[in-house]
Design a protein around this nucleic acid. Structure first.
Length: 223
DNA sequence: TGCCAGGCCGGGT
DNA sequence: ACCCGGCATGGC
């Protein structure tokens, strides 16, 4: 995709990739753990999510069948460190119930579905929004769907690369429409955006020592 | 100490 | 179609 400035989203990715190297996302030991983490990390520091996941692992509950059998009243205390533990318990339960009823608890069967169909089904589950659905699709299912999150918004808008008021689907389509359809690329790109967001793009601070400065304030946004 | 962290929902305008 | 309050812990 040539542009007026000669830069592409791929080059934007290259700049990040060169600076940080591979991110090895999603940080999990199984696909099911990705689903759990995707729900637990909603508006929450990943460090706190890790504590909750450790609790589940220690209890032998990082397993869809066991978690499905677990009385719902036991879940909040286990995931307490992740915050919002009451709502997240219901959301996790709703997700597991959905997989149980629609796919007999079989993740392979679930991910056999087409990306669009499965995305719609996941979005119909209470507590599963767009980012959570896309994270599950990409990082657990290996589906080619771009994940947008708060960091994506912040990093891209801070550097004048998207309109401040762009919404989720708009930003998602920007990436999907200007990159090769490649799971590895989508995986790495989103992880890198989180990385640079964490290190250089805090909410109430100007970006510092950012590898993306050469993309900034371009009167002719490259994409 | 107050602000922040890999959202989402439901109700109100 | 937006806008907002609620949800909650732990780190800095």
């Amino acid at each position: 995709m040539p542009t007026p400035t000669g830069r592409t989203l791929q080059q934007f990715y290259d700049a990040l990739s060169e600076r940080y190297g591979p991110q090895h996302w999603w940080p999990a030991q199984s696909r099911f753990e990705v689903l759990v983490g995707a729900v637990l990390t909603q508006n929450t520091n990943w460090r706190n999510v890790e504590r909750a996941i450790t609790n589940l692992r220690d209890a032998g509950l990082l397993d869809i069948a066991r978690l499905h059998r677990l009385p719902p009243t036991h879940l909040p205390e286990l995931i307490r460190p992740a915050g919002y533990y009451n709502v997240k318990s219901r959301r996790l339960k709703a997700l597991i119930d959905f997989i149980w009823q629609q796919y007999g608890g079989d993740l392979d069967a679930m991910f056999d579905r087409s990306t669009d169909e499965l995305r719609q089904e996941l979005l119909a589950v209470k507590g599963i929004g767009r980012e959570t659905a896309d994270s599950i699709l990409l990082y657990a299912g290996g589906h080619v769907t771009f994940v947008v999150d708060a960091y994506t918004f912040r990093v891209m808008s801070r550097h004048g690369l998207v309109d401040e008021q762009a919404d989720y689907e708009e930003l998602k389509e920007l990436f999907e429409g200007n990159l090769d359809r490649d799971v590895r690329l989508y995986n790495e790109f989103h992880a890198l955006l989180v990385r640079v967001g964490k290190e250089h793009c805090r909410r109430q601070a100007r970006c510092t020592d950012c590898p993306l400065e050469r993309f900034e304030h371009d009167p002719n946004p490259p994409f």
